[in-house]
Design a protein around this nucleic acid. Structure first.
Lengths: 209, 209, 209, 209
DNA sequence: TATGAATGAGCTTTCATTCAT
DNA sequence: GATGAATGAAAGCTCATTCAT
């Protein structure tokens, strides 16, 4: 049973790999199950042996991203360096993670869209997706806010920083990501340093360097 | 020679209003022409008297947003205040514009998604959308970069600032927008000040106030 | 009332002219009421002031053709020449009539198609058209058969000729028409003589001239 | 490497059979994909597994007819009998072929109509069909003309016969076909002999029988 | 397990016809 | 009479999902 399990899981991952590539290329709404099957080199019906349906593929893509995010957050939490250094590490870690897997990252566009469509609870038609993209950002903000507070009391960060500033830091990352996704001429990887430099030291000249 | 033109344009705007509301509620991919018609209180076929098809509605939504953006940029360009003040005005203007029309702003999710799906030019299947969302951000970055350079030479901004930092400023806005769109508990309007404060002065404490 | 009537009829004819032109160009099934209106230089709704609906335009086209046919038949009946000469006149008259109005003649394709679709009475879904294209050929055959019989008893035609041979003579005309309609390189007008020559004298060499 | 190919091709033929029956009954323009599917006893969507779309069904009908025609022409070419006998064989072969499959033959009405609609190359709206009905008649005329010329030099046919007379012979066949399609009281099969008799010997009495 | 043929709900789009102006 | 905006029934086509093999 154990080896079967591994095979099964490996196959599932292969299919998800394929799905992510196609989602990145065509976008989720334009991707047909058959496209995924073709990319994975299997038959259409076989996809259903590993995934409940089309949306499950997107949800599985979300899971991958969420897992990567959780890892980045865990790494940052484990750091014992000063808060501002930990913050810089967090930003770099997040950007590196996103830039390392462009196809997977491109799926974020679809997750935002699908997740955002669920922002109004009025009607359950269509029912909201099974994944909670907002939760990912909540966690990021929570950790950043904690670092900001720690940096304000123990380190050299300004006191009084909190959720709003955390949102801005997360925004700087995600906003750069967005520009990259929408415009390939923007190079996400090279924006990691400007993000930390701008957020930590601002754009205004300082009395002494 | 514009006898019914006013009516016709007004009708078109009404339908677009309706489309924007439905797009905001259900997302573009899940929106059927009939939903738009119902929201506008007209028959399905009538939509086609004013718009070429479903994608034309999205493109018209883009046009609205692009027009608003152009206005914000024009206002900022016309400002004769110091660069850092102009920058703050630009941020505030953009955020205010976005927050003032939540439904229209929510369409950005679909524009990002549709525009991003065109990020790979490999195949023309499906053909890329008629609108260029990336161009909007290019213009924002260009103006911000110009302000940063001006502020570096004439004002109190750091010298050497350019495109990367401009991308970060734009990212701070769009990233906050994103978090708001995906999570209604984030209040975009209240993030305008934190954005400018963080970007201009950074998060690090300054030697003197 | 009289002058009104003339105006009304003239307008009706104008619209029918336009319809015939468009039918010839695009075929009846592909012709929209709006195409006819545009060709006639009037508004779509105005067509309905003169014709019951789309099919009525086709039926009116049939009427025109039927009237032309009736005229050709009447001319031939009125002839007091020998049967074989009258037959030649009939063929020439029919071909001349058809070649003189190519657009109207092209509508025959649609009439055959629409009329033929009604050839099976099984179901009345869709209901058969209001015009009877088969009747036109019945009348032609009847007159030709009469001429053949007359030519057999009084003239130099073979005795014993009847409906089958009449069908062949009519077929020679309509078959040339068909080839012309389907292939513009076939010149209908120049086929009038070969039709009569072939039908009357055959293709086989005759003992003496 | 043709494991399911037989089945697939057989299925395709079944669907085409059904389409031909429905086309014959209702005419192509009035036939909906669903009618074809119902006639074939399958679901609407399944038709698209075997044919690109509605027009592909008509084109496939044309292919069938063209194949039959090619066979008739090949048989006539292979004949080593005198030209006038070969001509009679050709006429009989064509008529027999047409009369043997009335439903398929009825599709000619739609092919004429669709092919004729493409007679004016002015605009490509709608684009012309993929099949070339005119080519079928060109081939018939070419072979008949050849036989006529051969019969003029080697046989007992008149000298000087050519394309015009070939058109008349083809017309006699197709014109009888037309009358049959439009009027079931005309019996195509019985017209084969009158066609050859009339064309070869004419209607005029001969000095000696 | 794997396949891919089959299904049919669902969607976009067209257009004949109506009717208020 | 004339108009053309509005309607909504149709029809073509797609594709997620199922299931017999």
């Amino acid at each position: 049973m154990a080896p079967k399990r591994v095979d099964r899981d490996a196959r599932r991952e292969d299919i998800l790999d394929a799905a992510v590539r196609v989602f990145a290329r065509r976008g989720y709404p334009a991707t047909r199950i058959e496209d995924v099957a073709a990319e994975a080199g299997i038959a259409k019906g076989s996809v259903y042996l590993y995934f409940e349906g089309r949306e499950a593929l997107l949800a599985a893509g979300f899971e991958r991203i969420a897992r990567r995010s959780a890892q980045v957050l865990a790494d940052a939490r484990r750091s014992d360096r000063p808060a501002n250094d930990a913050l810089a590490e967090l930003v770099e870690g997040a950007v590196a993670m996103l830039a390392a897997e462009p196809d997977l990252t491109a799926v974020m566009l679809d997750l935002w869209s699908a997740g955002g469509a669920a922002r109004r609870a009025e009607d359950a038609d269509p029912p909201p997706p099974a994944f909670d993209i907002a939760a990912v950002y909540r966690e990021y903000r929570a950790l950043v806010a904690e670092l900001l507070r720690r940096g304000g009391s123990e380190g050299d960060l300004r006191p009084g920083l909190g959720e709003p500033e955390a949102a801005v830091v997360v925004a700087a990352i995600e906003g750069c990501l967005l520009q990259w996704l929408v415009d390939p001429s923007v190079d996400l990887a090279r924006l990691a340093d400007p993000i930390t430099a701008t957020c930590l030291d601002g754009l205004r000249a300082r009395p002494e360097g």
